[in-house]
Design a protein around this nucleic acid. Sequence first.
DNA 1: CTGTTAGCGCTTTCAG
DNA 2: CTGAAAGCGCTAACAG
Lengths: 324, 324
Amino acid sequence: MKPMTIKDLANFLKVSPSTVSRALNNHPDISLEVRQRVQQLAEELQFKPNSFAANFRKKQSKIIAVILPKIYRSFIPDVIEGITKKLNKNQYQTLILITEDELDNEVAAIKQCCDMRVDGILLSLSNQTKNLAHLDVCKKLGIPLVLFDNTIENHTFPTVHINDAEAAAKCAQYLNEKKIKRVAAVFGPEELNISKNRKLGFESELDPHIQLDVCFAKDANAAYHFTIDQLQNKQTNAFFGISDEVLLGIITAIKENKLSKKTEVIGFSDGLTMPFLHKQLHYIFHDGKIVGEKAADLILSCIEDDQNKSENIEIDVELFGIEV
Amino acid sequence: MKPMTIKDLANFLKVSPSTVSRALNNHPDISLEVRQRVQQLAEELQFKPNSFAANFRKKQSKIIAVILPKIYRSFIPDVIEGITKKLNKNQYQTLILITEDELDNEVAAIKQCCDMRVDGILLSLSNQTKNLAHLDVCKKLGIPLVLFDNTIENHTFPTVHINDAEAAAKCAQYLNEKKIKRVAAVFGPEELNISKNRKLGFESELDPHIQLDVCFAKDANAAYHFTIDQLQNKQTNAFFGISDEVLLGIITAIKENKLSKKTEVIGFSDGLTMPFLHKQLHYIFHDGKIVGEKAADLILSCIEDDQNKSENIEIDVELFGIEV
DNA sequence: CTGTTAGCGCTTTCAG
DNA sequence: CTGAAAGCGCTAACAG
């Protein structure tokens, strides 16, 4: 059965459609009496105003698109949660698009969003993306866009991210103060921006007297084997791990060799599994919820002020960990 | 600047809007020559057809809503990935709504979806939800709805889920065959359906000669302390853990007590962190991607056939684990 | 305070 | 093969 429209309601109540519309939207012009009568009948008849039509008329979609390379195991779910909660509070809905870290998919996703006339886009770049040319359409169509997490420096779009290099540098500083001779740093795949940036920050800050071994590990297992080797053949007594996944490999290897007490481990973590597993862990707490919230805030303010703001929000990160 | 419309294009080309529309949609009626001329100009002028308007006209949104209690740390991200991929391939977009396990939020989310006229809803029930009365609107408006993961038996909506009880029973069977005297089963919060169902299945299958201790743990830490107590005061030598989170606590406690070789651990896992951490782990592999895909398939077939099918898909699960 | 009217941008009969 | 015209369901001037 065909859903009811405002017109149907109006006919039924012997008033005009506009009156119904206004009554339903609590427009102050409408007398309390009429308003109640309309709302009551709407309730009884289970009338569902077609917000799709309303939004079309108002030239808005009330939808924000979130374009992500992947839904990683940790961090990103928190980001999504941060975003959706904030947006929901502001009557926006969240669309999720995944690029699989492929530029083509990213371009397609942007096009999709433009065609749909979403009210805003939150974009975490794919690691294949080297420039922002494909985002021109958004500017042209006046669709606000905020880059978050995996961003590129630019002067047209606002960004939200942590300072990866600086955070990694903090880790190096921590190690500098310990009596460390040799440290092994385990990053993710070499092409990832977080790997690059964190490597840069870590290396630049690390005391040059400390010997450094570097590994790009594609998963926990790779990190594990690298760590075993370091422990057994290099007498490495400090490890830096770029992510929870990599830390899992590192910590497992250390524990198996019963070297927990003698080995420093520091890295980036979402603060859940790894710190539980290894109480001695020091870590940069990378909080997805905050990143998500800030990104959502920023896109909302872009929509409201519709100014071409190009704010760059850098989220402060802190080093956590219980001293043993 | 106001985005271009089909009308603008039509004026420019001295043809009618309908011709442009048809040309853009590759309607066979339109001559190849005109079609190319239109498409070329559209390309040059970077014309973005407003799919929002088109969908409005066609009375469809090309949006599927996914309503979830939470974006848990594991499993759910995989579900989302499974869903979005499948839907994207079929030109649908994915909207994410989170209920925080509150019925009120679930009701609100359903309303939102109805108002927006989404083309379909994938719903994982909140643990507060005891019946499906609030879903009547969907039926009335003709919006297909599929229940997945956290479902309730019913005869109106199709469902996709694993058989929690049966899977837990498999775990019990495994333990029955070992020389176990006493087993401790750790569940999640008591009010969760997965806790209830898995407990039922486990208990019903477990050999009555095996002594059973039960714990409802709200997090890994609770599971950890419970496990410590069991190991030290009860000589328990087998553990059943309902989730990766709970298993984290159990395994950590076992390892700290150096009892890995002497203790059986079995449970539900997404197959990533825990099996890596503890090679002896046996686990029911709970694959979110499959659940998501199946749910997406089902909603798509509901939309296409628009039949009131009420299929119940039960996803098979397998017991994994390397024998040591 | 309420009604009339004119669209939003697109698709789709129905004619020609 | 192409055009004219109507309309999806709602909102928002503009009148009254």
